[in-house]
Amino acid sequence: MTSTTDLATAAPAARPEPARTAGTTRVRRRGERSRTASVLTHGVLVLAAFVAVFPVLWLAYIALGPDETDYLKPGGILHKASFANFSEVLNHTDFLTWFGNSLLVAGGTCVLGVMIAASTGYAVSRMRFPGLRPLMWSLLVTQMFPIAVLIVPMYYILASLNLLDSYGGLILVYAGTVVPYCAWLLKGYFDTIPVEIDEAGRVDGLSPFGTFWRLILPLARPGLAVAAFYTFLTCWAEVPFASTFMLSSDKYTLAVGLTTFVSQHDSQWNLMAATAVLIAIPASAFFYLVQRHLVAGLTAGAAKS
């Protein structure tokens, strides 16, 4: 597992303890555990894994029950399990529209957000210019903004720009929320690419933009992918902005659409469960592709502050 910290210097040497008198009966090899410890470890981990997975499996199970109240008598589902909810959701609701909206908004934010974050990340990684530190600092602070302080004024700005209830508006808002983190992430990635490559490019007559565009961006593809995945997952699961700024039901994203099953069509829990499962599958598949890199990136930004 990659780590972003250099701990070797941070850890103080272990305190010297007075040597214990040799009298232990049995010597165990390093890293070897007694049988009880091993059983205990597996027991705890199995329990934890069960707790972690159960709610998701439960939701998938509920989704198989065809009636609204089936979640109250889960035993009955076994006898009448069917995929009726899934076909209902796919054929008779706006699910596919919402899915398309989510895809469009998340994809749009990926392209816009990652592009501008990359150019900023490159600039702060390679160039020294007046205003560098304030910029880095404000990128960090932006990440701790509570949405409540922004959501009202944002609503008005979008309204006055005629961007309320439009994909463009939501993409812009999402870009604003993911860019600070992505810029930090990509700066970290660009820092690992040797400066000599830039210099070679400059010597061969490329402009600063040329080096960025033709040399560094292709080399940074893994970093860009992680930033894009992070952006995609964030947008895919975002609720408050989407539910405030998207007003008409054919513009809803999945996160907003899901809530309508409970409020409007008097609690269709079964359909909601099926929808939730359909939403979760692509997102989790995506997640497992990149989770290692996500952690390294997430902590990197804050560690360097």
């Binding site: 709610p55 998701v56 939701l59 609720v239 997640f287 989770q291």
Partner: peptide, 9 residues
Amino acid sequence: VPWAVPTFV
């Protein structure tokens, strides 16, 4: 898994 599946789900 709890992190992989979107929170609202």
